[in-house]
Design a binder for these strands. Structure first.
Lengths: 253, 253
DNA sequence: TTAATAGTGTCTATGAGACAGTATCAA
DNA sequence: TTGATACTGTCTCATAGACACTATTAA
């Protein structure tokens, strides 16, 4: 089934049913998160300079147009954007939502499909080949408050952080922020950093082991004196859902 | 800031950065749910006949192309689709996700932004003006199993039902399926119908009132002998999240 | 031996689930 | 008075949260 070329003469029927002669732009953007230096960070790229370029020189989420020749579907396009900016092979990738309006891109009506990704800090290989200053990690708080982002990317990033923080309350998502094998104390630290508060050790361990999504792989070296058991995710395709959320604790992380 | 016309000569820079000369089609589809005759139903429309039409005569989710002249943004487009098919004024409307690929529409690479809506059964005014047989309610189980749907709408509908059932476990969403004012037994019935299982009365009442999202509006008439207290949603803009999910119960609804 | 982190045991309070019971109406 | 439905009280049990405790290593 070879697809026809989209823009063609509009053969309107009774209602607005034929292919419109003006199409929105279609893009994919990815909010890539990692924990670096004990803080949750997001990868941003600098918009190119140039008269025709929208938001020149501002920081933006990595992304760009869907390429109907190369991208089989939206997910493949997101994988491509991710691969082009980081050398990461198999991060966690989830659809976040879509944003579309007449106003968000000065080049015309545009709709973006936003994804968010979690990658282990160790796996990051930035700026493979290209210029170094054009891509960088930012602590999410700084990216949200102190820098003006291109397009509506501040809003998208805000939604991504909220989604991440929300899901961390009742899923195993932070495990995707660690290289395997990892220890339970390391995993607990990921939860604490993303949530921004301390978590009780005993309850945390009970909860993680009861959720039954980790495979023990023997003792591993760590930063500690006493060695700790290492674990791997049993299923790297999807996070595990817990029956209840973490409960609040007043302390700072 | 007047937007330029999207399709123009491609002025490629070093990487793929200019506006592509072939753009995906952009559509919005809405899965509209209601509880009718004690069962969860979804609104489907029949695809038109015609040689140029994709999936002629098959049932599909209501939706269609984004109109860059009329639709300010995606949400406005979804509202328009909803209004064109049902006369409903202010249902619950939430973004579900997006589906895009080269294969899903024979007319070319296309991406749809899917929404789902909840409307009270009473509020439905179908086929306002147009032909009657072209739009109809289907019980979701039947729509999912017994009928072949156009495009990838079976997959989208499946995702919508899963999202709805999932969120009903820990949100006040079923309240949007009832006309106001409603009683707690009526609300409980909505939960039971969507979840497909019975819910304990006492726990249900405690839970609903503890969540503090309902306003009492005095006794209302109902199907019962004894009158019951009527309630309204305090906030019709967003559902309330409960701290825990409903727990399983083996019985049938 | 000490310091540091890994890991466990135990107490308590909360609240959900189950179910029996009471209240209030129509007929 | 009966039946039907609205609504409440109470018991039990699971488990999260808090925190004190033990275990195992390096130095």
């Amino acid at each position: 089934m070879a697809p026809k070329s989209p823009p063609r003469a509009p053969t309107r029927s009774r209602t607005q049913r034929a292919i419109p002669h003006r199409l929105p732009l279609t893009t994919v953007d990815v909010a890539i998160f990692s924990v670096i230096d004990e803080s949750l960070q997001v990868l941003l790229v600098r918009r190119p300079m140039g008269a025709d370029e929208p938001f020149p020189n501002l920081w933006a989420l990595p992304g760009g147009f869907v390429d109907v020749e190369r991208d089989a579907d939206l997910l493949a396009c997101a994988w491509r954007k991710l691969r082009e900016k980081t050398g990461v092979v198999s991060p966690y990738l989830e659809q976040l939502g879509s944003w579309g309006s007449a106003a968000r891109d000065p080049r015309g009506w545009s709709a973006t499909h936003a994804y968010f990704a979690l990658i282990p800090g160790r796996d990051v290989v930035l700026e493979q080949g290209a210029n170094a200053a054009d891509v960088s990690w930012f602590p999410v708080e700084r990216a949200l408050t102190r820098s003006k982002l291109a397009f509506d990317h501040a809003e998208i990033l805000k939604a991504a952080v909220e989604r991440l923080r929300g899901k961390v309350e009742y899923t195993s998502l932070p495990a995707f922020l660690l290289p395997e094998p990892f220890t339970l104390p390391q995993l607990q630290r990921m939860y604490e950093i993303v949530l921004g508060r301390l978590v009780d050790k005993s309850g945390f361990r009970t909860r993680m082991l009861a959720a039954d999504f980790l495979d023990e792989v023997g003792y591993v070296d760590g930063p500690s004196n006493r060695p700790a058991l290492g674990y791997r995710l049993r299923n790297r395709q999807a996070p595990t859902l817990f029956p209840r959320t973490f409960s609040p604790r007043t302390n700072e992380p």
